[in-house]
């Protein structure tokens, strides 16, 4: 499968789900297909699934999708048992496994040598874990995960092919503020409280 095609399928199903994407080209591809302030780009390799877990726990009625990579998940494997333990029904963890550290010079990851991430997710206790092997399988797994209310883990073996897309247009701090303002607006909550200066009180 091609990652870009899977992301295209996902973009058609995403609605107002919050999307956390791992460092690398996948983030750029996702943002070109589905630009918006509900997208959060991760800079720490490995932390994608943990940040998504935090969001899912903090907003339990809102769907949260983690777009992870094999190199990233391998760096933070302990995220799997923690996610399984917390079991947020609104979290969908998708791993695009291209078997290389794509953003770091394309050296082979452990999944290229046989490590099975879906097997690991299952063994960690995430019961609804599956491989999607074709575009159709990915589409039906993604649709079921987004429409359902159960913690899901989807592995998708993809090629190393990249699609030429524009760069991510904003820096980390702007990404944060836009995302949080979007949460304030869409959830009708106030996160940033502005205090009146002492001279006014």
């Amino acid at each position: 499968m091609k990652r870009y095609d899977c992301l295209k399928i996902l973009a058609a199903e995403i609605n107002d789900a919050l999307v956390v994407s791992s460092a690398g080209a996948m983030t750029l591809e996702w943002n070109s297909l589905h630009p918006g302030d509900g997208n959060f780009r991760v800079r720490t390799l490995g932390l994608c699934s943990s940040i998504a877990l935090g969001m899912a726990l903090g907003l339990p009625h809102r769907k949260v999708v983690a777009l992870d990579g094999d190199g990233s998940l391998l760096m933070n494997l302990c995220s799997l048992p923690t996610i399984a333990r917390m079991k947020p029904a609104n979290l969908v963890h998708i791993v695009f496994d291209n078997e290389v550290y794509e953003a770091s010079g394309s050296k082979k990851t452990a999944t290229g040598a046989g490590t099975d991430l879906v097997g690991m997710a299952c063994a960690a206790g995430i019961k609804n874990s599956q491989w999607a092997k074709t575009d159709d399988q990915f589409a039906s797994a993604a649709r079921a995960a987004l429409r359902g209310s159960e913690l899901c883990f989807i592995g998708a073996k993809v090629t190393t092919e990249r699609t030429a897309v524009p760069p991510f247009p904003i820096d980390e701090v702007e990404n944060k503020y836009r995302f949080m303002r979007y949460i304030e607006k869409s959830e009708r909550i106030e996160i940033f409280k502005t205090n009146l200066p002492a001279s006014y009180s």
Binding site: L18, V20, F40, T44, G46, L47, C48, S49, S50, I51, A52, L53, G54, M55, A56, L57, G58, L59, R62, N76, C78, S79, T82, K176, F179, M180, I183, E184, E187, I189, I191
Partner: peptide, 16 residues
């Protein structure tokens, strides 16, 4: 592992 906790706290902060 503590490092994942930094991500979890960051994610929860981002949603309020």
């Amino acid at each position: 592992r503590e490092e994942e906790g930094m991500g979890i706290c960051a994610g929860a902060y981002l949603v309020g």
